[in-house]
């Protein structure tokens, strides 16, 4: 069951302050990196919802993000829908597809679930790669951003778009918290703890899994819509399984099942990627070594390590009386 702790609140305040500082002070390149972090953060939040709180380790979330991106691109360019309608439709379609995938895969567990979701992701990737309507391997260009000029907001401005993504991420974080603390979220968590018992209590387990997977896919789809608007061009690479794998790496790096951890993971991962790739083309090796280190440390990612550290400190503070107290007793 998800709950906020003072440390989690503190981490959220720090992350939000850092993002706001970057959004108001950074130049073009810094703003691009910030937007990349924010969009990745949405994707990994979506993945953490299902993997961290329901044990549904998905390898198709990259593809679901791609469904949102391609859905928006096709609906807003080829179909000629206005951006708000295209956005809503793309997110809705992704949610529907995710629900169906969740329903179908709900009976499988562990490695079989991972493989089933990987298969769905690869099917989507292969289809988009070949289908002329999606531009094949050339991808699709000419994608417009949401037009908010009526309320005096120009999303074509890099700084404004970064701020828009930050507000969207905050709203999505709130949605994820609401879902995980709801009756559905509690049932989902109960299923992860003991699926057989939840069924014996009368819960239609597949339906709960499908519902949360659908909501998670909806968030991934929204991240895809923003990714398409960010670059204004999309290619099948967005749906490759490596995107899902990278998202899983970020969730584990940050802290599975914490919601806050994946946000930390997204920031660390993107900054590392940009910093290390400017030093060496073999930057993946270094990220790999860091990930192995995090996994081998037995802590739940970077944020889990921080939580463990503070928990141990407060335990030690309770166990060890203060020097003045000892003197007084003596």
């Amino acid at each position: 069951m998800f709950h906020h702790t003072p440390l989690r609140y503190a981490a959220l305040v720090l992350l939000a302050s850092g993002a706001l500082f970057q959004a108001f002070t950074a130049q073009y390149f810094g703003l691009e990196i910030l937007t990349e972090i924010l969009i990745l953060a949405m994707l990994v939040l979506a993945l953490d919802m299902v993997a961290g709180f329901g044990g549904m380790v998905s390898l198709c979330h990259g593809a679901l993000m791609g469904v949102g991106a391609y859905g928006y691109a096709v609906l807003s360019t080829t179909a000629g829908l206005t951006p708000p309608v295209a956005m809503a439709a793309a997110v809705g379609i992704t949610a529907g597809i995710s629900w169906v995938i969740g329903a179908i895969c709900s009976r499988s567990h562990g490695i079989y679930f991972i493989m089933a979701t990987l298969a769905f992701g690869q099917m989507a990737y292969s289809y988009v790669f070949e289908a002329p309507i999606f531009g094949g391997d050339d991808g699709l260009g000419g994608i417009e951003r949401l037009d908010l000029s009526a309320v005096g907001i120009d999303l074509n401005d890099t700084r404004t778009f970064a701020l828009f993504c930050l507000v969207a991420l905050a709203a999505i974080y709130g949605l994820a918290v609401m879902v995980l603390r709801s009756g559905l979220g509690r049932s989902f968590s109960g299923v992860m703890h003991n699926e057989q018992r939840m069924r014996a209590l009368g819960l239609t387990v597949w339906r709960v899994k499908a519902d949360v997977f659908g909501l998670s896919g909806m968030i991934a789809g929204f991240a895809g819509v923003l990714a398409a608007q960010h670059i204004m061009y999309i290619s099948p690479g967005l749906m490759a399984w490596t995107v899902s794998g990278e998202a899983l790496v970020v969730v584990i790096l940050g802290g599975l099942g914490t919601l806050v951890g994946p946000l930390v993971g997204a920031a660390v991962f993107v900054v590392l990627k940009h910093e290390l790739s400017s030093l060496t083309t073999y930057w993946h090796l270094i990220v790999g070594v860091i990930l192995i280190g995090v996994v081998m440390s037995r802590a739940n990612g970077i944020f889990g390590f921080i939580e463990d550290y503070f928990a141990a400190r407060s335990k030690a503070a309770v166990a060890t009386p203060k020097a003045t107290e000892v003197t007084k007793d003596a």
């Binding site: 069951m1 709801s182 009756g183 559905l184 509690r186 049932s187 109960g190 703890h193 339906r207 519902d211």
Partner: peptide, 28 residues
Amino acid sequence: FDGLTVEENLGLAAAIHTGNATTFWSDS
């Protein structure tokens, strides 16, 4: 449900009985 409290354990079952186990907008 080992990681949960006694109240949460009972609450999961009670939520299913009362039809509150699948609402995503409010805490059961």
